[in-house]
Design a protein around this nucleic acid. Sequence first.
DNA 1: ACCTGAACACCGTTCAAGT
DNA 2: ACCTGAACACCGTTCAAGT
Lengths: 209, 209
Amino acid sequence: MMDRKQRILDVAMALADQKGLAAVSMRAVAKRVGVTPMALYGHVAGKEALLDGLMGRLLTELLPCVADLPAEDWQARLRALARGVRTLAKRHPSAFSILMARPPVTPDAVRVVDLIYSALIEAGVPPPHVLRLERMFSTFAMGYATSEVAGRFGAGTRDPPDRRAQFPPNEIPGHRRLARWLDRTTDWDAEFEADLDDLLSILDAYRKG
Amino acid sequence: MMDRKQRILDVAMALADQKGLAAVSMRAVAKRVGVTPMALYGHVAGKEALLDGLMGRLLTELLPCVADLPAEDWQARLRALARGVRTLAKRHPSAFSILMARPPVTPDAVRVVDLIYSALIEAGVPPPHVLRLERMFSTFAMGYATSEVAGRFGAGTRDPPDRRAQFPPNEIPGHRRLARWLDRTTDWDAEFEADLDDLLSILDAYRKG
DNA sequence: ACCTGAACACCGTTCAAGT
DNA sequence: ACCTGAACACCGTTCAAGT
């Protein structure tokens, strides 16, 4: 038999994937594990610890995305990490939001940060800028993925003619001028890659070697 | 007497500010309003609608941050918006997370997006890029503010010597090489401004006029 | 060491009833 | 039109008790 704690986290993640994060309750997890709610407390300190455990799972799942890439190819590694974040968000859309909502406390969080630090150092970014640019890079990747799965993108432009019709024309002049483009559908993969290009071009400006 | 719905949202926001988003329950709001929980349902469709109402409040509070700035000064407007987002997050740290967790459905969400569209158009960014760069810009500003108030920044580096000590030295080589800088405290205001500089420099590359 | 049962103080929401 | 009371099906967690 498997470690009980791992089984609990398996069940919690499956529940999040199938029914959303709101359905991840101590009682629902216990029922699926086949045990009384109180039995969970022997393996997990409480609900908060359960969510931290899910965060750990997410970060562990992210780590292998750079495994095949040599340390020298820092651009490929940064791109792979960013794409990995987005893939992770699509695999676990409900649980993913934990990553932006709570402080990262697991060891793998430090490992992920270290992958980005190492890539930036390899790129020749001076150390004082590495810390900041790591945060900028990860903030963008997580923010984009979160926005995508949470529906933040598209909600403002979804059914745009209807929404725009609610406003007097001069109140939202930007939308008015962009109407032609707002009615197009967006290729989110392509947009993400274009954003990555722009961000990597920023890094270029800081490289010294 | 004030509109009941506005009073309900006042109370909900105050509750979020004082006791966190988890304390914003229909029952707790009703108690503070001085009414039975069921009485709320006449003015708000349910808990979800209540949270949408809070999102509306946040966006309405953000809008005036560019009021004094002329449309021509698009750089000042973008900077003011980004700073406004961050100020908003500090004023309502708990409620702020709603903005990244749910699709923006209020009219003011469209108005905020329009301010950024207009600034980018004013800057001379070609229309096809405006939509993408608006999302990149807002994703960054919201992501930074969310990370800051949710504790995502700093958690990995807080008490860094202790955390680093848990790892064999070669497993996190980036942290090892950056140890000298990791032990410094970070000026988050300055970091945000530096990030803004970098993002605005990206926009510069797309300007045509 | 690991689990259970009963209990406490909470949730969101429905529904029928009151004024 | 607006509110209430009782009820239903849930929560997280404590505590004493079982094996």
